[in-house]
Amino acid sequence: MTDGVSSGLLGGLMACGLVLLLVFGTLIHGYYVLACGFALLGFAGMNSLAPNDPLAHWAAAALALWAIFRLQFARQLLRLRHFAPRLDRVAQGVGIALVLTLLYAAVETQLAWTLRAVQGLVVAATVVLVAGALFSLRGLRWPALLFCIGALILLAGISATRLPSWSETPWPPGRPNMAQAAAIAELVMLALAVGARLRHVLRSEKALEARTHALMGAMGTDALTGATSRAGFESRGDEWLRDGRPFSLMLVGLNGFSRVTERHGRAGSDAVLTAIAQRLRQQVRADDMVARLGDDEFALLLAGSPTRQKLAEMAIRIETAGATPVTYEGRLLAGGELNMGIACHPADGDTFASLMASAGEALQRCKRQRMGPAYAFAGEHSGGSARGA
């Protein structure tokens, strides 16, 4: 019963590690899966094989492999090379000793020396790793703490069990193997430590993304789409006003964009936004500007004094380009249903704020209307007749 529960726990931990390995494909999860697998083989061999069995030395070899992959996993988890490089070199030395023990176990059927070496080296590796975890606390608080808890449990179990005694007499059926129980408990703590490390990595990535967005915004660029940021857009508009240049301002809103996020997640909506920004850039000239003002709102600054007919034709081209489906992960996502509000300087405002307000009112009027064009001009009460100037 006890052996079955232990094997089931180790098998479950191994399956969880395998899922993480398939999802993330990182070396640390591979080490965890191998540590679980060889712990299962090693302790199962001790519980079922007699010391004089021809396969008994392979159980000892499996325990050596468990110790090797456990050590490699912990080095990766605690980032010893970064936080404690000298201790990392000591851990590598212990790993080399474990490899030599493994080679001995593979060719020598005498178990006592192998088991003493494995037990002693596991204790030595654990002491080194706990010391390294203390250095890692400043950068990996919870992973290091959880590792230390698991290591203390393992040390207690290893100390309470005399593994070399298995080389003298078979392990009595039903007798608790404290080393096995401690190894399983430690693997559970290591799984929790991996989860804590993943949360740490995700928080770090989010913080980096936020800093990147802030930096790109300060530089005048939207980090996702490559379009100009709101700050850059307003700066260019104020510059053109100071220079007395005529220009038009077009606000572009995406209708129903929240449905894209609900159906395809953040990555799908990001793909749509990036495609919309690219299509907007394709519709303007080199002197014009495309900016992203918010989650689902873009804006164009159009240099010169184009007629309303020309602006209306551009709005129609933008509407058509935006409606084209976006390719994402082999699927076609619905493009943006675009509405546009258009204001012209100096006719619709003599400050940038007033121009934005005029274009915003036109955009809202366009969104409210059920029929008619997908654009509206400031100061008009219908959906944008394209009268020429």
Rank of each mutant, 00 (worst) to 15 (best):
Q92R: 12
R162P: 02
T225V: 11
A357N: 08
A223C: 13
G12N: 08
T114K: 02
A35P: 01
V272F: 00
A60E: 14
W142I: 00
H213V: 15
G336M: 08
A15I: 08
L63D: 14
F247S: 12
F233W: 06
K367M: 05
M14E: 08
L71S: 15
P143R: 03
R308H: 05
Q278W: 13
K206L: 15
P164T: 04
G232Y: 00
W113R: 15
L27Y: 09
R387G: 05
R308P: 00
M289C: 06
A191H: 00
A357I: 08
P51F: 15
L111A: 09
V130D: 02
H381M: 02
P85S: 12
R263N: 03
R292V: 09
L40Q: 10
A185K: 02
G322H: 03
P170S: 08
V94H: 12
A193I: 01
R81C: 14
G336T: 09
T109R: 15
A315G: 07
G304V: 03
L280C: 09
F38L: 09
A334S: 14
M189Q: 11
R86N: 11
I342G: 02
G256F: 10
L187Q: 02
F38K: 04
T26R: 10
Q283Y: 04
D350E: 13
L13I: 07
V194M: 06
H213Q: 15
R279Q: 09
L98A: 01
Y32A: 00
W171M: 01
P51L: 11
V252N: 12
G349Y: 03
A303H: 08
G335M: 05
S258F: 07
Y375D: 05
H381W: 01
G132Q: 08
L224R: 12
M340Y: 05
A376F: 03
G349R: 08
A62Q: 12
A376N: 01
A267W: 00
M219T: 07
G139K: 05
L49K: 13
N47E: 13
G388D: 14
F69G: 14
D222C: 11
L10V: 00
I68D: 13
M356Q: 02
R266A: 08
D350F: 12
L20W: 03
A125M: 00
L155R: 10
R86G: 12
L34F: 05
T212N: 14
Q282K: 03
G253W: 10
S7C: 11
A144W: 03
A35D: 01
S269F: 01
C366K: 03
A210M: 14
G294D: 11
A62W: 15
V326E: 05
G322L: 10
L77P: 02
E186L: 02
R116N: 10
R308F: 06
L140W: 06
L98T: 08
F233E: 00
I316H: 06
R387P: 04
I96W: 09
P85W: 11
D350W: 11
G45Q: 12
L111K: 11
L121S: 09
M250S: 12
G195N: 04
F24I: 00
E337P: 11
L77A: 02
R175L: 10
L18Q: 13
G232T: 07
G256S: 04
E313Q: 15
L49F: 13
V194T: 09
A74V: 13
R236A: 05
L63R: 14
A97P: 13
R199N: 08
D350Y: 09
S159M: 01
E262D: 13
M250W: 12
M216P: 07
